[in-house]
Design a protein around this nucleic acid. Sequence first.
RNA 1: GGUUCCAUAGCUCAACUGGAUAGAGCAACUGCCUUCUAAGCAGUAGGUUCGGGGUUCGAGUCCCUGUGGAAUCACCA
Length: 600
Amino acid sequence: METTAAIDINQHLKKAISNAFKEVFHHELSGEEVALQPTRKEFEGSHTFVVFPYLKITRKPPEASGELLGTHIVDNTDIVQSFNVVKGFLNLELTDKLWIDIFNQMAGQENYGLIEATQDELMVEYSSPNTNKPLHLGHLRNNFLGYAVSKILEAQGNKVHKVQIINDRGIHICKSMVAWLKYGQGETPESSGTKGDKLVGDYYVKFDREYKLQIEELIGAGHEKEWAEKNAQILLEAQDMLRKWEQKEPEVYNLWEKMNGWVYSGFEASYNTMGVTFDKLYYESNTFLLGKDEILSGLEKGIFFKKEDGSVWVDLTEDGLDQKILLRSDGTSVYMTQDIGTAILRFRDFPNIKSQIYTVGNEQEYHFRVLFLILDKLGYTWAKNCYHLSYGMVDLPSGKMKSREGTVVDADDLMQQMVDTAAERTRELGKIDGFTDEQASDLYNIIGLGALKYFILKVDPRKRMLFNPEESIDFQGNTAPFIQYTYARIAAILRKAKQLSIADQPYKITTLHSAEKEVVMLLNEFPDRIKLAAKEYAPYIIAQFAYDLAKEYNRFYAEVSIFNEENKNALYFRIAFSAVVARTIKTAMGLLGIEVPERM
RNA sequence: GGUUCCAUAGCUCAACUGGAUAGAGCAACUGCCUUCUAAGCAGUAGGUUCGGGGUUCGAGUCCCUGUGGAAUCACCA
């Protein structure tokens, strides 16, 4: 109903089927009850009606029922050209005229597939890194996913606020700070030429190494392992630093600001390469005290309860979960407390948002179930609209990435490697004649990052995915470069058409080549695919669509000549047709945060 | 132990939410560049959808059960 397609085929067909039921079988069947599905490739037709569920109504065998319905539909509508029945499947073949009309409609819409009307205002959170470590492959999945989902929701007419919360405080950053003070000798990103986030991350690693040494020494001196882990000198120093930070001791606070500043400029560079942006940043250092008041007032209202030691809990056993702590016995907050506070803060900052979408790994599924339940219990009606966009880990062939074991794939390194590979491949193929250095470098970025983004986004986010750094990501087949290449080919056609002054010419045609029809059928699905992708928060649906479209167009490209076509109408149509395909590919890839090149 | 998620071709992933003969790509093999870009197109081969039951016209999809894997259940974040 919100689709931008002016001709709603489904609606027409459902009505036709429901009419057929009425007149052939004397049975009222509302259009809504009729389910249509796309016809499988190996059969003639585009829309299929499954008659099995209706045999009790028709009181005839499936084939006969299908025949009767099909005959009635063909006789009584002007959009269905013919039909065939295979077992209980009624396949409907629409007229070329209808497909041409549909194509003309979408060709006239500059933003085909996108919905202009503002629906809801939403917030999407993604990235949200810690400031003690550089970004890695897992963050890439998070960022690409969050950004793509934001784009897709915008395409559905929502106003989206992209935010992240930066975990800028806590023991982890203090560890880096301690190590830097001890071993840094005043090193700065400028002095050593190290990217800020990498530099801070290096000191985090240095801390960990020293910490382990101290533990071993303590064990060697006869202490229990557990005691050693809690009493290693360097850890005590970090904890002391955290206390000083909380008291805002100027020396510590300044150092904290300085080192975080390094990290932020490093992150900014990474986000820039990734091509993701944010509308508002939240910092944990500003929000970590929030939520406590909410808990206390919830306690007064009897939503929460206090244990003997003074700690505050929520009982979720009725919801199938456990009890969960909200305030420690000393009255301080836990992670959950902060998240409650931050969620409420955001709804105050953006009073019109309907829901928040949290792009966070699936290891926090339990956390978010609890969070949404608590917010609901506190009486926030928006809580039930909130959604945890959960995604699986990215595994390496060796198993899970572990920063302490050095088995992380660094985000910057990986992106650079992809761009380098793209450059190498492009040069091998001799594709950059006449490019300036800048154009060439842009192209490598578009291809390399496109390949990486597509590789990650084409997978259902819920599933774990495997990344093998040994095998480079493909540039052929179901990949971004394949789709980008299709776009670039069309761009070449359109340039030539312009040169020959035969672009944007009016045409009048009555039949379509089968390859053209297949493509138009796909194009027609675009609005529905976006709608589904938005509903499911699933960019992979868009990725699949872009691939299908490119694949189908390439078939047309191989089978049908454009500039050798002597019939002017067919020639002009094919140029317009190619332009719409290119435009749609660009839009679809844009929803994934992937650019397309005019030449490659 | 409780809860949740996952298991599909040698590998990486699909299967429009219960529909037809389970599809793509990579890797392997065969063809196609003097015509709009071969990062392409056409084709061959590759499957007991983890095992076992059940529900029904019809199951990779839903239910039960077993096996294998993952996450989570912290006064950690």
